[in-house]
Amino acid sequence: MKTKHWILIFAAVALLCAVAIVLFPLPQQVASAADIYQNGILIRTVPLGQDARFTITAPNGGTNTVAVSGGRIRVEQATCPDGLCVNQGWSRTEGYPIVCLPHGLVIQPKGGDTPFDAVTN
C-alpha cells in the first residue's frame, strides 16, 4: 500500500479521536476502587465502576449500609450514635476517607487521575 494511503488513514483516525475527545471530556476525579477496613484490617475492596449496596456488621454489633453509585461511595445508613459517617456524604477521591469511628469502619477510595496526598475538611 502506498505511503500516502497510510498517512490518510492515520489522519482520519486522529481526527476521529479529536472529535471523540471533544464529545467525551475526562471526568474530574475517578477513583477506581475503595478499600474497606474494619478496625484496621482490610476486609473488602469494592470497585467503584458498578453500582452496589451492602451492609457491614461491626464486631460490636453496629451496622453500616454502604452504597456505591456513579463512581462514588458513601455510608447510606448506620446504627452508630452520631451518624457522622452518613453526614460525610459521598467520596470519590483518594485522600478523603469515610469514617465511622464507633464501628471502626474506614472506607478509603484509591486510584484516580488527580490523586490527593491528603484532604483537609
Binding site: 456524604g89 490527593f116 491528603a118 483537609t120
Partner: peptide
C-alpha cells in the same frame, strides 16, 4: 482527621497535594 501536617516534600522532591473540600458537596 482533616488536619494535615507535612514534613519536607515527597521523596521525589515534589510538593504534597492537599485538597480542600467544598463545604457543600463531596467534591474538592
Amino acid at each position: 482527621g482533616g488536619n494535615i501536617q507535612t514534613i519536607g516534600t515527597k521523596p521525589d522532591g515534589s510538593d504534597w497535594v492537599v485538597g480542600i473540600q467544598d463545604p457543600d458537596s463531596e467534591n474538592m
